[in-house]
Design a protein around this nucleic acid. Sequence first.
DNA 1: TTTATTAATAATAAAGAAATTATAAATTTT
DNA 2: AAAATTTATAATTTCTTTATTATTAATAAA
Lengths: 106, 106
Amino acid sequence: MNTTSQKHDVFVAIADPTRRKLIRLLAGAEELPLHELTPHFQMGRTAVSKHLAILKEADLVTNRKIGRETKYRLNPAPLQEVKDWLAFYEQFWNERAILLKNILEE
Amino acid sequence: MNTTSQKHDVFVAIADPTRRKLIRLLAGAEELPLHELTPHFQMGRTAVSKHLAILKEADLVTNRKIGRETKYRLNPAPLQEVKDWLAFYEQFWNERAILLKNILEE
DNA sequence: TTTATTAATAATAAAGAAATTATAAATTTT
DNA sequence: AAAATTTATAATTTCTTTATTATTAATAAA
């Protein structure tokens, strides 16, 4: 792990609204090239391309070159890590569960 | 919304590993003051205090002053937003579901 | 083969986040 | 009352992220 490729965190990847929107767009289509994704945003191609690179480092998207375009595809599998993380806190976030817990602890 | 108080995003709040560890520590106790949380980290009190402020802006923690200490408590409710966001993608991230979808689309 | 399209990378600039030290304020202990 | 404890805030520094422009390369279309 020298110069490039930082092996990006899924939590960091989904923290950015642009990247969440990219995920959403890719969920609605099998594959999309950069130039079809770009017009949905107010920034330039290069910026969108970099957001896609971050998603790719988190393994949330894959891509393949078809002719001169690079088609991006969603890979939702890494979201499982977030789901697992949340699962631990589910026991806390229900108010009824908290009340019940308080009663049991008396 | 003038000088302070930026109304922080839950996704941003949980993106940082220090803050996830704070959430985990607070899940394991009813209430904890800053000086009990700090020794679990390599940074100073001030830095931990600021991370707690970000969690508070995201409404993931509440606090109350008891004498000279400020006790922090976890409020997991805002995590629901993340759970809801993930729920949308559950239909995609199961390989069996993807295979089935491909078959149905033929 | 020239021109247009598509996209990645490098270099830079700007903005934002994270951590530190220093200071101040409030509360408890001695 | 003086000293110690606990915390918050301000000022500063450092680091990281985000976005831009410019350059290069590759493919497709004219």
